[in-house]
Amino acid sequence: MGERHDAPTLEDLLAAAVRADSLDPGAEDRALAAFRTARQSGAHGARTRWRDDWRPRAHRRLGRSLRATLAALMVSATLGGVAIASIGSIGPSDDGRDVPRPSKSAPDRTSEDPAAGPGTPGQSDGFSATPSDRPPPARDHEAGPSGQPVKKPGSPDPRTGDRSATPNQPASPSQSATPNQPPHSNQPATPNQPTNPSEPGKAATPSENSGDGSTKGPKN
């Protein structure tokens, strides 16, 4: 073995020496018997635990970042929707008076008294600024959900467009950060290995062996 090299490497020698070069047929028969028994008892339909999931890490990374992306999208859509909803609610005659501020849910806003003071619930949800916090009430600048000024209706609203585009931004850092994190910090399951206090995981090796194994649906 190792004919291509001047000499077999230590690893070659060890592997050749330690690996069993002949297998006991009785042992294989016993393993086959166990296989048949398990098949008959229907055990092969059991769910995959974390310890049984040995798919190449790229698949699992995709799953995690997909959830992170969706979560970020939902949050951003909420903010964006609030921003859009605020367009119609801010009239051109604003002065220092409070106006119905965008709140997390539209029903809250419509049920508010538009003339209410700064203490109304919908306005203290963090999205809005009290009159004292607001910038000078220039007509074109109102504090929006993110504290960014929003344009009046009828004018091009690049910021709303920006906010719509924002969902992509949070996803990227999480996508790039996730693969380098030890997987055990992302796994909700408790470790099943009795000897190990923490659950290790594979480091990022996207170039692992091509997946020929079955990928029958998501792990449980």
Binding site: A31, R49, G213, K216
Partner: peptide, 12 residues
Amino acid sequence: ARDLGRFRGDGA
């Protein structure tokens, strides 16, 4: 053999 159905992954 018993838990074979639970396994997910490739040869490695």
